[in-house]
């Protein structure tokens, strides 16, 4: 949808005016259209301070403009540390980290998932938690006088089935990123 680059001039000729409504319908994205581009979010964002790839204000701007493809396929939306610093200060209650979550949720459905997040999601489906609790771990726990923890938690995988996340993950989500 975006046209050619003229010596690093990002010229955008096509915008998707529906994108902002799509994001607003997603849990967490409800307030996105309130943004008045004050820059408070980026001013306090630690990630933005250390990494020029990430600028929450600009991401919100791109969504409002309707740069759907560029936003959803960008790895920058995965860079939010969800520290909520901006959330506390945004004068328009845009709820930026939740907006980032909304964008990531849409991206996943569109086939873009960051490999690190894919890996986490798969681990959880398998073990019921982020880490495997193997016999060794449980031995150590009992040594310390702590209770054993059951290995695996099948209900978690069941939940993935109920919500459709299992299908999303097996259906090749993430192939694009």
């Amino acid at each position: 949808m975006e046209s050619a680059q003229k010596k690093d001039v990002p010229v955008v000729t096509v915008l998707d005016p529906k994108f902002k409504y799509e994001v607003a319908r997603e849990p967490g994205g409800e307030n996105i259209k309130y943004c008045f581009q004050c820059g408070t979010c980026t001013s306090g964002c630690k990630v933005a301070e250390f990494d020029s790839k990430y600028n929450p204000r600009k991401i919100i701007r791109m969504v409002i403009l309707g740069m759907r493809e560029r936003v959803l396929s960008g790895d920058f939306i995965w860079l939010c540390a969800t520290c909520y610093t901006c959330h506390e200060r945004c004068p328009q209650d845009v709820r930026i980290p939740e907006v980032m979550n909304a964008l990531k949720n849409i991206a996943v459905r569109e086939g873009y998932i960051h490999p690190a997040f894919r890996a986490q999601a798969e681990l959880i489906a398998g073990y019921g938690r982020l880490y495997e609790v193997d016999e060794l771990a449980n031995e150590k726990r009992t040594d310390w006088g702590l209770t054993e923890i059951p290995q695996g938690c099948p209900e978690v995988a069941e939940i993935y089935g109920i919500t459709g996340l299992a299908d999303l993950l097996s259906g090749g989500a993430g192939g694009k990123l």
Binding site: W78, A102, K104, N105, I124, P150, E155, T163, L165, L168
Partner: peptide, 19 residues
């Protein structure tokens, strides 16, 4: 302790809200 506790949900919130 409740042995059946599983993942809290946090790590998948950005991937799949409902899950």
């Amino acid at each position: 302790d409740i042995p059946e506790f599983g993942c809290c949900g946090y790590p998948v919130k950005s991937v799949h809200h409902e899950t």
